[in-house]
Design a protein around this nucleic acid. Structure first.
Length: 463
RNA sequence: UCCGGCGUAGCGCAGUGGUAGCGCAGUUGGCUGUUAACCAAUUGGUCGCAGGUUCGAAUCCUGCCGCCGGAGCCA
């Protein structure tokens, strides 16, 4: 079918031009003046295209008057300046071809309001709503802006594995991958399941992070990034967690924590500017219908310089703030979200990078600082959301890394490959991780993370 | 996982012990270059499931299931 997208039609096609558009009917209004109005949406943009379907059409009574929300049509006609007030242009149809009717009694997305909860039960249809169409477009923009940003800076996109051998991933809750029969798995003499007979000859699971594999490529290619799905089997029931989510993880060789923080700041600013530039219509929709103020928030952040503070200074700021927190701040604690928000919203009044956390509350791979009690870690905190990025300079000194592994109760033998990077031509390197859905959540103002990914997976949710 | 809230018509909701309601959608009719169209009529419910208290339960109690919010964990 030779069709033109509605986005294109609405962005400057000359009145008088013959066009063919195709899409789904949002609403139909009949006029006794001898025609019907059809509002058509094809997903290319938020706006609908108004179609004038004259009663003279052969199939007016037979088809057009039977169109309801959800029906699909192809319309051939002429673009005209609109006589009505709601739109600049409209298409006067010479032919309306029905591709598929949508029975109004059955179709769940009519003209009535449908809540996000209900739409979550209809993942195959919810992209046809204004909200989820807008989310899908913004999500695409952000993904595209991510690749552009790293490509322009010479970062290599590395595809890290989805299935990993669990031995090397630490103790997080993982989804096991197996082809063994769960009822009658092969057993070893001691009664344990014999994973040597499993598909991979050993236990395997879905990845929780591409970082370790990303580091191996950074320690050969220089600057790399990963952008792929990750999986956590934790029983988290919150509006900020998914069992399957996408993560962006850059990793830079010959880089320290300062380089890392600079990259994070430039990256976020690039993303905000890209979505403001290319997603303006959708952002206005979110600002109007989802979260008033989300647009101004993005505009503020797109140019705001990031604050910078060490964890130790941050705790002092919290302690001397005079603010009564639910959890009293003290050195050594993990920062609560109330603390993070206070720092970003009231102290720095903008994004802030907190660095050099206590070693005790951070992962084994983060580089020990000379003070012996902190590590070169950073979190980027945003107003109103808290942490959006977590990163660190990695420990590149083999003896220190080995000692930390042991102290963490981990077996260095299982990290042989990771240690090899330090054994052979070790270099300082640093990176961070950004949860993509939380970024989409932040930019759209959508409240629940399950509504910014097409098919959300969470405890008891795999529709 | 813990705490709190909710579950009533296709959808969004009201109804705190006495015959189950409103709005939207649907259907029918009317009207109109309409645009969240409007006006009138009308269809539609085993009140999440199971048990209990009571003359009587959507309403009170217990258990279960599901969803939402907050917390923890984190991204």
């Amino acid at each position: 079918m030779k069709r033109i997208r509605i986005k294109t039609v609405l962005s400057g096609v000359e009145p008088g031009t013959r066009v063919t558009v195709a899409g789904w009917v949002r609403t139909r209004r009949d006029s006794k003046g001898g025609f019907s109005f059809l509002e058509i949406n094809d997903g290319s943009c938020l706006a609908n295209l108004q179609v004038i379907a004259p009663a003279e059409l052969d199939n007016y009574a037979g088809d057009v008057l039977k169109l309801h929300p959800g029906a699909s049509v192809a319309v051939e006609g002429t673009l005209e300046a609109s006589e009505g007030a709601g739109q600049a242009v409209e298409v006067r149809a010479r032919a309306v071809r029905v591709l598929g009717f949508a029975p109004p009694v059955e179709y769940p997305l009519g003209k009535q309001k449908v809540g996000f909860d209900r739409l979550r039960e209809l993942p195959h249809l919810r992209a046809r709503t204004n909200s989820f169409g807008a989310v899908a477009r913004v999500r695409h923009l952000l993904a595209n802006a991510t690749h552009r940003f790293f490509h322009e800076r010479g970062f290599l996109y590395v595809h890290t594995p989805i299935i990993t051998s669990s031995d090397c991933e630490g103790a997080g809750a993982m989804f096991q991958v197996t082809t063994l029969d769960p009822h009658t798995p092969p057993r070893r003499a001691d009664g344990a399941v014999d994973y040597e007979q499993d598909f991979f000859g050993r236990r395997a699971a879905l990845t929780v992070s591409g970082q370790l594999e990303g580091e191996t490529y950074a320690c050969a290619m220089g600057d790399i990034y990963t952008f792929g799905p990750t999986f956590r089997a934790e029983n988290s029931n919150t509006r900020r967690h998914l069992a399957e989510f996408w993560m962006i993880e850059p990793e830079m060789a010959f880089a320290d924590l300062d380089d890392d923080a600079e990259l994070a700041e430039a990256f976020l600013r690039h993303l905000f500017q890209a979505v403001l530039r290319d997603g303006a219509d959708d952002l206005r929709f979110f600002d109007r219908r989802v979260l008033p103020g989300v647009l101004a928030r993005l505009e503020r952040l797109a140019d705001a310089p990031f604050g910078r503070v060490t964890y130790t200074e941050a705790v002092r700021l919290l302690e001397t703030s005079g603010r009564a927190f639910e959890f009293a701040p003290c050195w050594g604690m993990d920062m609560q979200s109330e603390h993070e928000r206070f720092l970003a919203e009231e102290v720095f009044k903008g994004p802030v990078v907190v660095t050099d956390y206590p070693a005790a509350i951070k992962a084994f791979y983060m580089r020990r600082n000379d003070d012996g009690r902190t590590v070169a870690a950073m979190d980027v905190l945003l107003p109103e959301v808290g942490e959006i990025i977590g990163g660190s300079q990695r420990e590149e000194r083999m003896e220190v890394l080995e000692a930390t592994l042991r102290a963490s109760g981990l077996n260095p033998d299982e990290y042989a490959a990771y240690l090899d990077l330090r054994r052979y031509g070790s270099v300082p390197h640093a990176g961070f991780g950004l949860g993509f859905e939380r970024l989409v959540q932040f930019c759209t103002g959508m409240h629940n993370i399950r509504d910014v990914i097409p098919y959300p997976r969470a405890p008891r949710l795999c529709v």
